[in-house]
Simulated assay, not measured.
Amino acid sequence: MIQDPDPSKVIDWSERFADISRPLEIEVGSGKGRFITTLAERYPEKNFVALELQTTAAGIILRTKLEKKLDNLQIMRADAADIDAFFAVNSADKIYLNFSDPWPKSRHEKRRLTYKSFLQKYQTVLKDNGLLEFKTDNSGLFAYSLKSLNNFGMQFDFVSVDLHHEADEIVEQNIETEYEHKFASKGNPIYALHAKFQTKDL
Rank of each mutant, 00 (worst) to 15 (best):
W103H: 05
T177Q: 04
L146R: 09
N174I: 02
K65M: 13
Y96N: 08
L126E: 01
L146A: 07
L97Y: 02
D79K: 07
H108C: 06
R111Q: 11
E109P: 00
A81Q: 12
D128Q: 15
Y144H: 14
K182A: 04
K69M: 08
M76H: 00
E176C: 12
K110G: 09
S106H: 13
N151W: 11
L70C: 04
F152R: 02
Q155H: 14
Y179V: 04
Q155L: 14
N72S: 05
Y144C: 03
I170Y: 03
F158R: 13
I83D: 02
V171T: 05
F134S: 00
L146K: 12
F134H: 06
A78W: 00
N151S: 11
H108Y: 10
N129Q: 15
D84W: 04
Y144W: 14
D101M: 07
A81C: 12
W103C: 01
L73D: 05
S148K: 11
R111H: 12
S148N: 10
G140T: 09
A80I: 01
H165Q: 11
H165N: 14
L66M: 12
F99H: 00
H164N: 13
H108I: 06
Y115R: 06
G153M: 05
L70R: 06
L113T: 10
V171Q: 07
F142Y: 11
L149T: 10
L149K: 00
N151R: 13
T114M: 05
A85W: 08
H165F: 07
F156S: 08
A88I: 03
K182H: 13
R77Y: 05
M76Q: 08
I95L: 08
S91M: 12
D79F: 05
Q123M: 02
D128C: 13
H164G: 04
N151I: 01
R107K: 15
L149S: 03
V125R: 00
A167L: 11
G130I: 00
N90G: 09
K68G: 06
T136W: 01
R112E: 11
T177R: 06
E176V: 11
V125P: 00
S139W: 09
Q173W: 07
L97H: 01
T114G: 03
S106A: 15
F183G: 00
L97K: 03
Q173G: 14
A184V: 03
M76W: 02
A92E: 08
Y122C: 03
T136I: 02
N151Y: 13
K182E: 09
E67Q: 15
Q120V: 08
D71F: 14
R107Y: 15
F158E: 12
L163E: 01
F152C: 05
L119R: 00
K135E: 10
Y115K: 05
K147H: 14
A85R: 12
F118R: 01
K105E: 09
S100R: 02
G153Q: 09
D84K: 10
K94Q: 14
A143S: 14
E133K: 12
A184T: 02
N98K: 08
M154T: 01
K69I: 06
S117E: 15
T177F: 04
Q74W: 10
D71M: 12
M154A: 01
I170R: 06
T177A: 06
A184N: 07
K105G: 10
V171L: 06
N129C: 11
K69V: 02
L97Q: 05
